[in-house]
C-alpha cells in the first residue's frame, strides 16, 4: 500500500535544458510550505541531460529530485509528460503540487489533475497554509490558493479540502526566488523512461523561440506608458525618461494594442508581473488588469490628467496634469540634479 504523505512537489519546467525562473520561485515558496507541513520538498524534472539541473534545485531546499532523463523527453510534449506525471502522482500521492502558470504549466497541470482527480487552481498569486473550517468541518493545514477572478474584480481564496493532492499553477514573478545560504544535501532519484504508444500520437515538427531579451522582472526602475500617451511619437518620451533615470520601458495592454510598444514589454494580468523599486505610470488609467501586474512596486508615481483615474488608488505619489509637459519637466529637473 502506498503511504499517504505531506510532501510538496514542484514541476520544474525547462526549455532546452534551461530552467524557467518560475520553477525556482516555486521551489522557494514550496520550501516554506514543506516546512509548514513538516514534510519534504521534491522537484520533478523531465528532460534530456538534466542531472545538473537536478543538483541546482538543492540550492532552493529540495530534498529529492525525481528525474526522468531521456532524449525523447527533451522538449515538452503534453502526452508523455502528463502520462508520466499522472502515474507518479497517483503512485506517490503528494499533498501539494505546484506548476508555473506558463503555457506549459497550464497545458500540463489540468491533464494531470483530471487523471488523478486532484483539485487544481489556476494562476495563483499567493499561497498560504492554514487550518480551515469549511462547512462546519475542521481541516488541518490546507493550502490556501489565492487568485484574482472575474477579470481581476475579485480576489478568491480557493481550497481543495477533500482530496489528497492540492494542485495549483502560480503566476510568474509573484513569488520571490531565494537561494539558501547553504544548499540542502538532496538526493536524485532517476526513473527510467519507458515509451508508450500514446507518447507519439503528437509529433513536434518545428519550434521557434526567441529568448526574451527584455527582462522587466529584474529591472529596478520601470517607466510605463499607457493609452494616454496618445501616439507612438509621444511614447518616445517614455523611452527618454527611462534612459535618463536608468530604467526599463513598459506599457499597459492598451499601449500594446495601440502599437506603441511590443507585447513583451506589457505589464499586467496578461503580461509580466513586476515589483521594481520605482514604477512610473504615465498616461495609464490603471485598469485592474494592469494594476495586478505592478501594484507591489516599492514606490509608484502616477502621472495622469484625470484626477479620478484608478491608478492613483495604488500610487504613492500622484501628479495630475499633461504627461507631455510633466515628463520633460521631470527629465530636466533630474538632469540638473545630476550635475
Amino acid at each position: 500500500m502506498n503511504k499517504i504523505n505531506n510532501d510538496v512537489w514542484v514541476f520544474i519546467e525547462q526549455r532546452d535544458g534551461t530552467p524557467a525562473d518560475v520553477s525556482f520561485e516555486l521551489l522557494s515558496k514550496g520550501r516554506k510550505i514543506a516546512d509548514n507541513l513538516k514534510s519534504e520538498l521534491k522537484a520533478v524534472i523531465l528532460g534530456d541531460k538534466v542531472q545538473v539541473l537536478a543538483t541546482q534545485t538543492f540550492q532552493f531546499g529540495v530534498n529529492e529530485a525525481i528525474v526522468y532523463d531521456h532524449k525523447d523527453l527533451a522538449h515538452y510534449m503534453t502526452l508523455p509528460y502528463s502520462r508520466l506525471l499522472s502515474k507518479l502522482v497517483s503512485d506517490e500521492k503528494p499533498r501539494v503540487m505546484l506548476y508555473g502558470a506558463t503555457v506549459i504549466g497550464r497545458d500540463l497541470a489540468p491533464r494531470v489533475a483530471s487523471f488523478t482527480k486532484s483539485g487544481l487552481t489556476a494562476d495563483c498569486t499567493d499561497l498560504q497554509v492554514s487550518d480551515v473550517n469549511y462547512l462546519r468541518k475542521d481541516y488541518k493545514n490546507l493550502l490556501l490558493q489565492i487568485r484574482p477572478a472575474f477579470g481581476g474584480n475579485i480576489i478568491a481564496t480557493i481550497i481543495s479540502p477533500d482530496v489528497q493532492t492540492q494542485m495549483a499553477t502560480v503566476r510568474e514573478g509573484v513569488m520571490r526566488m531565494e537561494k539558501l545560504d547553504k544548499p540542502i544535501e538532496g538526493r536524485i532519484r532517476n526513473i527510467e523512461y519507458v515509451a508508450d504508444p500514446i507518447d507519439s500520437l503528437v509529433k513536434l515538427i518545428e519550434q521557434h523561440r526567441k529568448e526574451n531579451k527584455v527582462n522587466l522582472k529584474a529591472a529596478p526602475i520601470i517607466v510605463a506608458g499607457g493609452y494616454g500617451m496618445k501616439t507612438k511619437e509621444n511614447f518616445a518620451l517614455i523611452q527618454e525618461l527611462a534612459n535618463v533615470i536608468g530604467g526599463e520601458v513598459a506599457g499597459s495592454r492598451a499601449a500594446v494594442d495601440a502599437g506603441f510598444i511590443p507585447s513583451e514589454r506589457q505589464v499586467g494580468q496578461t503580461g509580466v508581473t513586476v515589483r521594481p523599486k520605482l514604477y512610473i505610470a504615465c498616461g495609464i488609467s490603471g485598469a485592474i488588469q494592469h494594476r495586478a501586474g505592478m501594484q507591489e512596486a516599492n514606490k509608484i508615481i502616477a502621472i495622469n490628467s484625470d484626477p479620478d483615474a484608478p491608478i492613483f488608488g495604488v500610487a504613492h505619489y500622484g501628479i495630475v496634469g499633461d504627461v507631455m509637459e510633466i515628463i520633460p519637466r521631470f527629465i530636466n529637473e533630474f538632469k540638473l540634479k545630476l550635475r
Binding site: K117, S118, G119, L120, T121, V132, Y134, L144, Q145, P148, A149, G152, N153, I154, I155, A156, T157, I158, I159, S160, P161, D162, V163, I288, I301, A302, P310, F312, G313, V314, A315, H316, Y317, G318, I319, V320, G321, D322, E325, I326, R329, E333
Partner: peptide, 25 residues
C-alpha cells in the same frame, strides 16, 4: 468539484493614500 471557494474579497477601485505632487517645476 474538489476545489471550493473559501473566501471572496472584492477589489475596491477607489481610495488609496498618495501624496499629491504639484505638476510644477
Amino acid at each position: 468539484s474538489p476545489t471550493k471557494v473559501h473566501k471572496v474579497e472584492s477589489v475596491v477601485l477607489t481610495g488609496g493614500n498618495h501624496v499629491m505632487v504639484p505638476p510644477t517645476k
